[in-house]
């Protein structure tokens, strides 16, 4: 039984990692073939680091992810704080229903509906096309918001409402009581929401595809237009670089987490 489950786990992980292993292997190929490995070379890494358009797209993606996660974190946290105080009833349930829409709807429908809105606005202001950084930012903030709200709300429910009141009784103004008492206690939720928003925005293709214009391309959109033709292994090289950097970040994060847990343990002892 043990060995069966080991083989099974191995097979599923092989399936999950097969395309990634292929991609890593062929990013070191001497020819541009993606089926025959003819020798080791670093030429594709060199060529991707010299490819201005791709680097530009990578830069755009990062800018968009940072700004959209920042905006959605602030807006979403404020929203959660307000929603938490709503009384049960129509207002609360309709706000929550609307919040769930971007998560339940197929991404393509969200993308298309955004595009229709932007086309309409374009007609209103008589512009050739409004699609660009602004529309992408709006779209990304919109699909990020539910994730921020839904990770902050449970934390708010766990915080004791009396704490903020106690701070006010002790002479704190409501605003500073909020920033000094409520915000620190919901911080883990805010950070989870922000990380989720950041990774979602970094990775999003479908919604961006419908809300972006030729002037501002993100990496997934650039990759999409490349995969319409034959992809050169330099894209593989770029993906390999991204993959390895995420892997290192995750490993570091895990080590840090373990260390802090050990500290907590030793403190308890």
């Amino acid at each position: 039984m043990k060995s069966i489950s080991k083989i099974y786990t191995f097979l599923v992980f092989l399936f999950l990692y097969a395309p990634i292993l292929v991609l890593l292997l062929f990013s070191f190929n001497t020819t541009s073939s993606t089926s025959v490995f003819s020798g080791f070379s670093l030429q594709w890494y060199k060529s991707i680091l010299e490819d201005k358009a791709t680097l530009r797209a990578l830069y755009n993606t990062l800018i968009l992810a940072v700004s959209s996660s920042a905006v959605s974190t602030v807006l979403g946290t404020a929203a959660a704080v307000g929603i938490d105080k709503y009384k049960k009833g129509i207002a609360r349930s309709s706000v929550m229903a609307v919040t769930n829409i971007p998560m339940m709807n197929p991404e393509i429908v969200t993308g298309v509906s955004m595009m229709l809105l932007f086309v309409f606005i374009g007609k209103l202001v008589n512009a050739e096309s409004v699609l660009g950084f602004g529309t992408l930012l709006i779209a990304h903030v919109t699909f990020n918001l539910p994730y921020v709200i839904l990770s902050v709300l449970p934390k708010l429910r766990q915080t004791d409402a009396n704490l903020a009141e106690a701070a006010q009784d002790l002479g704190c103004r409501p605003a500073s009581a909020f920033f000094k008492v409520v915000i620190p206690s919901i911080m883990p939720g805010i950070i989870t929401g922000m990380i989720m928003a950041f990774t979602l925005s970094l990775d999003d293709f479908i919604i961006s595809y419908f809300s972006s214009g030729p002037g501002f391309q993100t990496l997934p959109i650039a990759i999409f237009s490349m995969t319409k033709k034959r992809v050169k292994p330099d894209m593989y090289a770029l993906s390999a670089i991204i993959f390895v950097s995420i892997l290192i970040l995750l490993i570091l994060y895990n080590i840090a987490q373990q260390k802090s847990e050990e500290k907590v343990k030793t403190k308890k002892e």
Binding site: L75, G76, A78, A79, A80, V81, G82, I83, K85, Y86, V95, V98, T99, I101, P102, V109, T110, V112, S113, M114, L116, L117, F120, I138, A139, V141, T142, L145, I149, P174
Partner: peptide, 28 residues
């Protein structure tokens, strides 16, 4: 009154969701 003020903190989001979640679906 203070809880009403706290509820108002969510109004930017309410406006945002009407503009960019509800309105696009009406356009569909």
């Amino acid at each position: 009154r203070s809880s009403l003020r706290t509820r108002l903190v969510s109004s930017p989001y309410v406006v945002w969701s009407i503009l960019f979640i509800v309105a696009p679906l009406i356009f569909v």
